[in-house]
Amino acid sequence: MSRVVASLLLCAVCILLALLRKYRTHVVSNPALKYSYYPALILLAALGINYLLTALGANKVYTFQQAVYGLSLGSVYALIALGYTMVYGIIRLINFAHGDIYMVGAYAGYYAVTVMHLPFVPALVIAMVASSVLGVLIERIAYKPLRNSPRITLLITAIGMSLLLENVGQKLFTSTPRTYPTIFKASYEVFGVSVDQSRIIIFAVTVLLMIGLQYFVNYTKPGMAMRALSQDRDAARLMGINVDRVISVTFAVGSALAGAAGILVGIVYPQIKPTMGIMPGLKAFVAAVIGGIGIIPGAMLGGMIIGVSENFVTAYISSSWRDAIAFGLLILILLVKPSGLLGKSVREKV
């Protein structure tokens, strides 16, 4: 028992150290610690988890297997969450249609692979482009005219677009689920844990896209315009930023990421159907909030946390509790730190 408590404490300390903002600035200023801090923390946490599993007498291979599954599911959530977080950061809208854009991406990828017989990479590009065009269209037609109306109106419109996409999807693709052909067959074994090639791909593509997005937002001109817009739309306009275009670019990029998630989910979880976007959409938004809305690494972190915890709940408790864990975590985070794990808190000016 004491070993369980000790290892839990170790893990908790690691998480706390990773999150403590004040301490981190001190670390970054110290050159010796700057590059070893996070790797050391991760190592320490891994040791703690290993110790915990030994203490609990758990089947380690099974546990790590679940973690691998969780990370690939989490990648999907993370990719969708990135689009949510970008759109929210810029126009403060929970774009409920985002989950359905992901569905359209999955179908675009499906047709690219089956009908056009394209290999993975061109299919991925097609899925991303198709989603991107759809995202921009939705923004232009349904959201742009409402930019100055109450937020709830915009929210309802987004819900309407979401329902519309689902129902048009039912008409266009029929409600019978489609099955992706197997694209990546190989599977590797690492310390007894089987790692499918498809799961490596999904994780790698997600990480690459996130790094690309991080670069785009932080080091390019349109990215800077986006950040300016998310701070103050009117001030950005006065600085000569074409607000409409930046918002369109945001939707384009965010939707492209959802499209990528659509095809990636197809190669690991091959069944796709027109209503597939609802739950992942909601959970991805939850992921974005957990990580800190508007923060790109936060969306990634949140997505992974939800993916992994869902898999653990399914493995150790019951799959029927799976849908509750995301929302349970959400409420916990909102009550403890409403601005999200990586978010900054703001004070209202009176």
Binding site: R151, L155, F327, L330, L334
Partner: peptide, 22 residues
């Protein structure tokens, strides 16, 4: 939850609604 405002409150109520169902 009512300590939260706006969209955060909306998401929290959505979450509770789903949890009740589960």
């Amino acid at each position: 939850t009512l300590r939260l405002k706006g969209d955060y409150l909306a998401i929290a109520t959505l979450g509770f609604g789903e949890i009740i169902r589960v």
